[in-house]
Write a protein that binds this DNA or RNA. Structure first.
Lengths: 348, 348
DNA sequence: AACCTCCGATGAAACGATTTAGACACGGAC
DNA sequence: GTCCGTGTCTAAATCGTTTCATCGGAGGTT
């Protein structure tokens, strides 16, 4: 039952109310909350009874004002609609839960302005630390957070200087793996379907593709680059249409997409326009999200250790928060190609 | 630049530090922050200069302790890995952003314990209000939140009593639409692939399916119910294997799945085992997530207005927060069947 | 009986912002 | 010269919790 002040609206009970009801002092109530072993059993039970009767809910603002720190972490995601990032978030969540901290998820949706607003708000909230897959890892706002005392770990990107911890996957290698796989399968003309060059992941994967292509001694003009405005399913479909529009002798026989969303869009457009995969077009995606394996033509994709990525990032953050002798670390995981029917099968 | 205390570590600057640096009083700094028009231009600029020099970051804990309210909402999601819920979240986000509030996303992952921990923490944080897709809408913890003054809006579920606002979609109707569509196409034996009965959405959609089946005068035993332990892609695949295991004369010619994750799993299993969709098995999903249309055999699905669901829920919450004369409202949206190739096409 | 020790409980002082009542200076009007 | 209003700024109280120095009493030791 909530306390009512005069004829007014219910106001939540404070430690003071609890103390008065239980007939003890403020400090004792606080001890029951924070160091129960220092309070005798009878007093403790009396206080706990009072808390239950009054419906006492600890005020986290007051607590963190006094102690100077909160019990929460935050992960600022690049795109909450992409299952890859929600999987990373789940890895982070597990680590945070194990450490007894709660995790707030924020979605920047690829927009700098939203990202900035989230960061400012999190900083004001005094979260213990921030994990972020940034729109731009060189954004000075990130340095500013560090300077002002909020630890930051960069997820799925790296950064030249080393004033941050970061956890990433070798995207250049991932790009190479994908294209080498296609070259091995005998393809002589391949498309790279990327998003905007402003996205680091897209740049690196494309770079890896070019390296593999060059090392195989194939002519650069036979690696056709298609840029989309965003790495989404809809853009993948659009890319498929552009591919069909090419003259047959210039048309690639395989495509490597910068992520699985693009690949799934391309796959759908290809099949619904009457062509076959991989017969008319082999397709490699990136991220190996659950829907990749579940597609009707299961998608060959470059797998990243999504959970480990998140878990490791959270561990680094927790270490930075807890250990004064913390040293920044740049973890790079190795991606792995998962070959499935979209490049392997020989359709009837 | 952060203030350094003696030889110690940097501590973030407070209004007091800003006041001292600018040579004004505490109250003036606060006025610059909250009522800039009450401060003369020269003083204001001096204070702003000091804030920038010191790297002042307002302490939200102190602010909300004093004012008694925060600037945030929260949405507790049932499954962050299901694109349906991230789409709902996006709708909420837009409304929150428009109201100048920030939104925290929490993931209960279908587990009551996690949900409870999140709710307790949010209550302690004194968020303005909570949107939730609950594991169990009758959980007494939800009533307790209301009693203690935190407004709650239930999303994608309804509840018998009306002490809450809620925004839902008519799941019984959705189930009917799906099964009527299959009956119209001439199917005489249909499977309902649901998750555990503990999930309300699963129950309601199944109920709608049964109603439509009964009204068509078809024998109840020809509506085969398959229960999965969770509504996921993996379970959809497993359901597909169970379907194949049935004797041919009892095997359904169509399946209605409680959500698109199940449907995509079932679709994949069906095709990879050499059968065709919809030739050997027609499939209807539910939610119409983006991957449904993007599947290689585009999925017929029951569409819910995901964005509107989120947006409307947020609006109800904001009204409840802002308007003392607020009346609880139970909004029910109408679902819509989107017919695609998985039930329509006639494969070669 | 005097002394020491511990255990439990107390009360006051923070934490950093907001808010409110009032101080002060400066003109202008009578 | 007094009075008033206006525009700025100040000082102090306050939000709910934690923490720390302190205090009283029970029990044991000499």
């Amino acid at each position: 039952m909530a306390i009512t002040t005069g004829a007014g609206s219910p106001r939540s009970a404070s430690v003071k109310d609890v103390a008065a009801t239980a007939g003890v002092s403020l400090g004792t109530v606080s001890n029951v909350l924070n160091r129960p072993d220092r309070v005798s059993r009878t007093t403790r039970e009396r206080v706990e009874r009072a808390m239950a009767d009054l419906g006492f809910v600890r005020n986290e603002s007051a607590r963190s004002l006094r102690t100077g720190s909160t019990q929460s972490l935050a992960y600022v995601m690049l795109d909450a609609g992409n299952p890859f990032f929600t999987d990373v978030a789940r890895g982070i969540e597990l680590a945070a839960e194990a450490a007894g901290l709660s995790l707030f998820l924020c979605n920047s949706d690829g927009r700098s302005a939203r990202e900035g607003a989230h960061l400012a708000h999190l900083q004001q909230q005094r979260v213990q630390g921030i994990l972020i897959t940034p729109v731009d890892p060189d954004d000075p706002q990130l340095d500013q957070l560090i300077e002002r005392g909020t630890p930051v770990v960069i997820v799925d990107r790296t950064r030249a200087g080393s004033s941050f911890c970061s956890v990433a996957v070798d995207d250049v290698l991932g790009g190479r793996l994908a294209v080498e796989h296609l070259i091995d399968a005998g393809h002589k003309r391949v498309a790279y379907v990327g998003g905007p060059e402003s996205i680091g992941q897209v740049r690196d994967r494309g770079e890896g593709a070019r390296q593999a292509w060059a090392e195989a001694g194939l002519p650069p003009e036979d690696l056709v680059v298609l840029s989309c405005e965003a790495p989404t399913v809809a853009c993948g479909r659009a890319a498929g249409e552009r591919l069909v529009g090419l003259p047959a002798r210039r048309r690639p026989t395989a495509a490597f997409c910068a992520n699985d969303l693009l690949a799934l869009g391309l796959l759908q457009q290809t099949i619904s326009s009457g062509r076959t995969v991989p017969g008319d077009l082999a397709i490699v995606g990136y991220d190996d999200i659950e829907f990749a394996a579940a597609a009707a033509v299961p998608l060959t994709s470059v797998r990243q250790p999504r959970h480990d990525l998140g878990r490791r990032a959270a561990e680094l953050l927790l270490d930075e928060v807890g250990d004064p002798a913390h040293e920044h670390e740049q973890v790079v995981f190795t991606p792995e190609l998962v070959a499935r029917a979209s490049t392997l099968g020989r359709p009837s």
